[in-house]
Simulated scan of single mutants.
Amino acid sequence: MPTHFIKLKPSAVDEYKAIHAAVWPGVLAALERAHIVDYSINHYPPLQLLIATMKYVGDDYDADMKKVAEDPETQKWWAATDGMQESFATGATGSGKDIPWWTEVEEVFRFEGTS
């Protein structure tokens, strides 16, 4: 389950939450086509962090993420949301580019249980 983080601009908190309260159906459809069955974004205000986790159930993560990046509706979504964020990645210029906009973090522990 990949986890990523990025900084949310303090001036954009309300706008970011509002747009995510009604995510565009085409964006959600692109995620589903990419075999993402569980996706959440959490906000940690003291550090202005957005932390995203997703459950990927496909066979080729890189290819599926490329399809998401090529989706026109997702590109419009990123154009609306990228300006609300500040990337931690040196040289990043936006979502779907060669340098990842969101920073992926290493998982050091997971417990899934048996239930």
Rank of each mutant, 00 (worst) to 15 (best):
M1E: 12
T3R: 08
T3M: 14
T3D: 05
K7V: 10
K7C: 07
K9P: 01
P10W: 06
V13T: 09
V13S: 11
V13A: 06
D14E: 12
D14L: 09
E15I: 07
Y16P: 02
Y16N: 11
Y16R: 04
H20L: 07
A21E: 06
V23F: 08
V23H: 06
P25L: 08
G26I: 06
V27S: 04
V27I: 07
A29T: 11
A29P: 01
A30I: 02
L31M: 15
L31A: 12
E32S: 10
R33H: 03
A34E: 06
H35I: 04
S40W: 05
N42S: 13
N42R: 14
Y44H: 14
Y44M: 13
Y44P: 04
Q48D: 15
L49W: 09
L50N: 03
I51E: 03
T53H: 14
M54Q: 14
M54R: 10
K55V: 15
K55P: 00
K55A: 13
Y56G: 07
V57C: 01
V57Y: 00
G58H: 01
D60W: 01
D60Q: 05
D62E: 15
A63L: 12
M65I: 09
K66M: 13
K66S: 14
E70W: 10
D71A: 03
E73D: 15
T74L: 03
Q75G: 09
Q75P: 07
Q75A: 07
K76N: 13
W78N: 04
A79E: 12
A80R: 14
T81D: 01
M84H: 08
M84A: 04
S87D: 03
S87H: 02
S87V: 04
F88Y: 12
T90A: 14
T90P: 01
G91V: 12
T93E: 14
T93P: 02
G96F: 06
G96V: 09
G96W: 03
D98F: 02
I99C: 00
I99Q: 02
P100C: 04
P100F: 02
P100H: 06
P100K: 05
W101S: 08
W101M: 08
W102E: 11
E104I: 12
E104R: 15
E112S: 15
G113H: 06
T114E: 11
S115E: 15
S115Q: 15
